[in-house]
Design a protein around this nucleic acid. Sequence first.
DNA 1: GGAATATAGTCTGTAATACAACATAAGTTT
DNA 2: AAACTTATGTTGTATTACAGACTATATTCC
Lengths: 175, 175
Amino acid sequence: MMGAMASLQHSPLAPDKPLPGLIPGDLAWHLGMILRGHQTRFAEAVEEMPCSVRGYQMLSTVVHHDPANQQALGAHLGIDRTVLTYLLDDLVAAGLVERVPAPTDRRARKIVATKQGAALLKRLEARVAAAEQALLTELDSIESAQLARLVSKLSMAIHRAQPGANPCEAMDHLG
Amino acid sequence: MMGAMASLQHSPLAPDKPLPGLIPGDLAWHLGMILRGHQTRFAEAVEEMPCSVRGYQMLSTVVHHDPANQQALGAHLGIDRTVLTYLLDDLVAAGLVERVPAPTDRRARKIVATKQGAALLKRLEARVAAAEQALLTELDSIESAQLARLVSKLSMAIHRAQPGANPCEAMDHLG
DNA sequence: GGAATATAGTCTGTAATACAACATAAGTTT
DNA sequence: AAACTTATGTTGTATTACAGACTATATTCC
């Protein structure tokens, strides 16, 4: 639709550069653009959820990765522990998760989804998946798969390369 | 390096899912991870620059896209106009850009790089390009090119699809 | 031409947010 | 058991985004 008409004046890049040679810094611009577009749709998809996107991500992480404690959860999502405290307060208040004493370590709390939490997550996952598909609309299925593969591979690599600045650091504690 | 050894316990995904089938919401997680890793390296690369990454992006946009006025600049980068005012104040104070009256519209200011600004940008671009390459280290050159292509294509598509929520809206005024 | 309206930029105040610093309880080491 | 570390929670502070008001200039419509 409306593909290569006109002169692509609005392109942030020189129209027909083959792309491996982006202006330095453009990668961040494109990533930011995609992430912003994604966040917009994502937030809309999960508007029922307290704390919006992060609420969804916390609940999803709890259900799918079963982190051993709050710290592992926060580290996975890059959320500071002091921030996590009040984000979780909201989810608890909404009855979506509970803080239960961790069996192996009485200092720690394990976050578990309630029945309602699991149900809400299941319901929202369909909406989120649809939002992600909508975002990728302009890519064909091969491109989407390629992008998913590359993005996954790269994020793993980044995780391994700089564990300090990186939420995945504590992934080893997960599950 | 260290590829498929062990069980990939730290992976946020089921170890051997073929990736097109991510958990709903994982795309955002991976994108966020990449962007965060990028920002870390990026910020380090441009530490000389006032306002850090955004300072660099503003200066880069001014030089490479020559936006007609502040609004176009801010829209391109997704920066609110009231915020842009004081970010630009910093760049002006550092002698990197100037606000000159726009020739066609006396309400507007055109942002132009000073000699020092252009020189600093040139110097930092090498560092930023190196940082981006370092980020992509784990991808081979074909994969990097693929990623750049897909990311560019997708960000353009997003721009076209939702102009409202999107910084590119005002790209038409640029250049 | 001139009133009404729209737009570019700035300034001010407010609300959200992250984070540092401290506090507490429980595990670990020596 | 004394000293140290870790997991979480609490409080205060600084940053940051953004809404709203304001000025100056453009544009539109009569």
